[in-house]
Amino acid sequence: MRILILTHRVPFPQNGGYPIVVGNTIKGLINHGHEVSLISLNVKKHTDKVLEPDELLRKIKYKEYDIDTRISWIEFVSNIFTKNSYNIDKYYDAGFEKLLVQNLKDNEYDIIQLEGLFVVPYLAAIRKSSKTRIVYRAHNIEHQVWRRLAQQKGDPIKKWYLNLLARRVKTYELELLNKFDGIAVFTGQDKASMLSFGTKTPMRVLPIGVDLAMYIPAPAKTECPSLFFLGSLDWLPNREGIEWFMNNFHKDIVDGELKVKFYVAGNNIPEEFDEYEVPGKVFIQGEVDDALEFINSKSIMIVPLLSGGGMRVKIVEGMAMQKCIISTTIGAEGINFKHGESILIANNADEFYNAVLKCVRDEEYCRTIGENARKLMEEQHDINKVTESLVDFYRSII
């Protein structure tokens, strides 16, 4: 099959949730003998560094288009008085649309896959230029992310504004859901939500797939006990979650009963997070050169998400690396876990405290949770199995 994938950011390198999902999808399709083309918006804020060419680029047809998604204060304020959602509209560019339309005239595809809501503004142009079946992969139900963020805010102005965004995004999402030929979601929860919205489009639940050959646990390299968080803090639910954790447990780690070193790593960590750092206790490391090596070196992963949606890539990666993970229910959405067997679920401060304390004090318990997590990934998240289901879904709508 010939498949065109559209993304709202360049998925290279694979150092975050979105790039990992897109990269693994491409790898799986190529390994199964399909021809993949990729066209990406190149958002300037993601390209500050000079990056090594990704070897995956040699195996696909690839084009990118530079776009600046920054908006002025005047544009931001004026948008409040419109019905549009600026956080979606900012990804529309007439030049990119022209490039895309020309590509569709020059090539024939069996499937066009839109990776997330932020490339959907080009749907109308695609429909005018091609009769190819279009699959929308919903990385989140986006308005639910904003609504959950609003629910966590005490500031009435921030709550009002986030609820405004949520309402606008919801209107946009619901108007589009029956305009695709197929929808792929990561979780059963997201499928149920879409069905409740009246979606008639064929839908398939396809979990995040990983190339398990890349995830090689190395217990001998692991610091036990050690606590860590890994995630991009330019994604608001991640930042909200780690701030909640710090506010609740920083003192317990520095001076209390949680006798464990805590490491925070990821992209775009704000400078003010340096204030959390305490020598020998709390380490704010920022972006790491090798995320898998970092995961391998630590023993207990926390995912304190209070909002968000979809399936968290970092949990899948942590489980594949045989880590003991403590997560909220929201953080673990879509994963077929058993609490106390393959993951630990904690939804409030007391539950998180008790889970961390148990793991810090019982290394064998921690190791068993991690081993069960790896088995779960092998059974349900192997990229080859997920790709077979994805291709079967393609064929069912052609």
Rank of each mutant, 00 (worst) to 15 (best):
N31E: 15
H46Q: 14
G309I: 01
R374Q: 12
E55C: 13
S37G: 10
R147A: 07
I39Q: 03
K49D: 08
I397A: 11
E223H: 06
M194T: 02
L57V: 09
A94K: 14
M377Y: 10
D392N: 14
I325G: 07
P13L: 03
K83H: 07
H381S: 07
A150M: 07
N103I: 00
N384Y: 10
N267D: 09
P304N: 06
I3S: 10
D110N: 15
L29N: 13
V22N: 03
V36L: 14
F81K: 09
L6Y: 11
K251Y: 05
E272S: 15
P121V: 06
R70Y: 02
N140Q: 01
I269D: 11
N267S: 15
I183F: 01
V119Y: 01
D106F: 05
K259A: 14
D54C: 03
C366I: 04
F229I: 11
S130I: 04
A125W: 04
I88K: 00
T82A: 06
N178S: 15
S85Y: 00
L258D: 09
L6N: 10
N248L: 10
D68T: 05
N248I: 01
E293G: 11
D106A: 10
K158V: 03
S342A: 13
F294Q: 13
I335R: 03
K281H: 13
H8V: 00
V119P: 01
N24P: 08
Q189W: 03
N267R: 15
Q152V: 06
E173Q: 12
H250V: 04
Y263R: 06
L305C: 13
I253R: 03
V119Q: 00
K159W: 07
E223I: 10
I141Q: 01
G33F: 08
D255V: 02
K49Y: 04
P13V: 06
I134S: 02
T25C: 09
L100I: 08
L6F: 12
V185Q: 03
T47G: 11
L123E: 01
K158C: 01
E379F: 11
Y65N: 04
S130W: 02
P219G: 09
P53Q: 05
H139R: 00
K261Y: 09
L344N: 00
V135H: 00
G209S: 12
V386D: 08
D255E: 14
M1V: 12
K338M: 12
N163Q: 07
Q151D: 14
I325L: 14
L99D: 04
P270E: 06
I111H: 07
E35F: 11
A373K: 14
E341Q: 15
I369A: 13
E115N: 05
P121D: 05
E287K: 15
R147I: 02
H32Q: 15
G334D: 06
K375Q: 12
Y353A: 03
L306E: 07
Y161P: 00
I71G: 01
A138Q: 01
W235C: 02
K375S: 09
D252P: 02
L149W: 05
Q189K: 13
S129C: 08
L233N: 04
G310T: 10
A213I: 05
P13Q: 05
V288S: 06
F81Q: 07
K159Q: 13
N178M: 14
Y353W: 09
A355M: 04
S342I: 11
F96D: 12
K49A: 06
N87C: 03
K98A: 10
Q322W: 00
I157N: 04
N248G: 02
S130L: 04
Y136E: 00
Y215F: 15
E277A: 15
W235S: 03
